[in-house]
Amino acid sequence: MRFRALCGVAAAVALLATGCGSSTKSGDAAATAGASTSAVAGYPVKVTDCAGAGTTFTAAPKKIVTSNASSLEMLLQLGAGDKAIGTGFPPAKGSMPAQFADQAAKVPVLGQMVIAKEKLLGSGADLYIDTFAHATGMGGMGDVPTEQEFTAAGIKHMYLHSTACAATHLGPQQDLSAVEGDIKNLGAVTGTSAKAEELVAGMEKKVGAVQDAVKGVAADQRPSYFFFDFDAGTKQPMAVCGKQVANAVITLAGARNVFGDCDGDFKPVSWEDVVAKNPDWIQLGVRNKGSDAANQQAFDQAAQFLRDFPATKGLKAVQEGHFVRITSEVTTIAGVRDADTVQQIAAIVHPDLVKG
């Protein structure tokens, strides 16, 4: 079920950047070593895994493999996409921002899901960006390299804290600081810190505008919100819990995630649980199908299920047609576009306060 949930929302399981060395501190260290001709500006840079163990970079990596589309998109957003030599869980057609689609399509696919251990170790990469934390809990997806094997292959191993560490090492995500930390850390590692700061500043500006707009709405007056992961299956709903990135997105948009109090990032629940919550709004969680027409068809199918299913057809959101049609990738996966999703959800659930 855990693996199905990850695939249903286009993969993701979260990571925070606390405890990682800042690019500013690293820059100071490099400046101190400026007398050495071997010193590289902005380095060394130290990042940590979920347990706090550090990895130090003395120069920018040249060949990067990403575990899935979210970390690949981060590289592209940072302007470091030319370093990508392979990825797992490749982006679905139409899911990448248009300006990066052609470049993303040229990155070799090393695995349609988790990259096989032998292929990853033999890829020639000097950095592996891990969104899944070794695919822990992903349903017997095969063997994964040990840290010793990564080292022997000359591959440094970096985690996105907002997804890989969420379930085990983070508290509830109520803002995008974890995602922003990942962007800054990856920027520091790849030598694109200036671009990372620019991206984060843009995210903070968008989210800040929403926060200003909804600040007058009391917490108990904010609409309740259920992320319905339609692609994960309809037999048993999969809840987005407090440690998932989507909880931060929903919270910042001025809504209340009805399962925000469950521990972890994802959790299977019952339809009885959903009925008991009786949400004001339901997001129709479908993966990007590659075109507006295909996406609308998928949204329609998800909405029709809720209208027809005996357990849900009487829900307030269903009766009132309060469906949010935003794809899963930009809601449940860490990235720059999370801030756009905050704006979009806020404009739907608070139309009098936030303009679309």
Results as ranks from 00 to 15, higher is better:
237 P>Q: 05
347 A>T: 12
59 A>Q: 13
80 A>W: 00
190 T>P: 04
84 A>N: 06
215 K>F: 08
27 G>C: 06
24 T>N: 10
40 V>S: 07
109 V>W: 09
118 E>L: 05
137 G>F: 13
21 G>S: 14
165 C>M: 07
219 A>W: 13
240 V>S: 12
205 K>T: 10
191 G>H: 01
207 V>M: 03
52 G>Q: 11
40 V>W: 07
286 V>P: 11
233 G>F: 00
166 A>M: 10
81 G>W: 03
37 T>F: 14
243 K>P: 06
19 G>A: 00
81 G>E: 04
136 T>Y: 11
337 R>M: 02
212 D>F: 11
3 F>C: 00
333 I>D: 12
325 R>Y: 15
147 E>H: 12
143 D>C: 05
333 I>K: 08
98 A>V: 15
196 A>I: 05
349 V>A: 05
197 E>Y: 02
267 K>Q: 15
4 R>N: 14
330 V>N: 12
241 C>K: 06
269 V>T: 00
115 I>S: 12
339 A>R: 04
269 V>R: 07
350 H>F: 07
353 L>S: 10
204 E>P: 05
185 N>F: 03
195 K>V: 01
313 K>R: 15
352 D>Y: 12
164 A>I: 04
68 N>Q: 10
184 K>S: 11
245 V>S: 04
113 M>V: 09
110 L>I: 04
176 L>C: 07
114 V>E: 15
196 A>K: 01
163 T>M: 13
122 G>H: 10
85 I>G: 05
134 H>P: 09
111 G>E: 07
136 T>W: 00
211 Q>S: 13
310 P>G: 06
263 D>Y: 03
37 T>Y: 14
218 A>E: 13
139 G>T: 10
33 A>R: 08
183 I>D: 01
35 A>W: 13
247 N>Y: 08
157 H>Y: 15
197 E>I: 02
354 V>Q: 04
198 E>P: 03
29 A>I: 13
331 T>P: 04
291 S>K: 09
295 N>F: 04
325 R>I: 00
85 I>Y: 05
91 P>A: 06
255 A>S: 12
228 F>V: 01
218 A>Q: 11
51 A>R: 06
343 Q>F: 04
279 P>G: 08
108 P>W: 05
191 G>M: 04
298 A>N: 01
14 A>D: 09
95 S>M: 11
73 E>A: 08
133 A>W: 13
238 M>F: 10
78 L>N: 02
161 H>R: 13
124 G>D: 03
247 N>H: 14
143 D>V: 15
4 R>G: 14
26 S>Y: 05
114 V>P: 01
18 T>C: 00
48 T>Y: 06
270 S>F: 11
132 F>I: 02
84 A>F: 03
311 A>V: 09
100 F>K: 01
83 K>Y: 09
200 V>R: 06
316 K>F: 03
3 F>Y: 14
72 L>C: 06
128 Y>N: 05
105 A>C: 00
307 R>F: 11
128 Y>Q: 08
103 Q>F: 04
307 R>M: 13
146 T>N: 09
38 S>H: 08
222 R>N: 03
96 M>N: 11
43 Y>S: 09
295 N>Q: 02
225 Y>T: 00
86 G>V: 06
54 G>N: 01
266 F>C: 10
109 V>T: 15
284 L>E: 12
302 A>N: 07
256 R>N: 15
275 V>I: 14
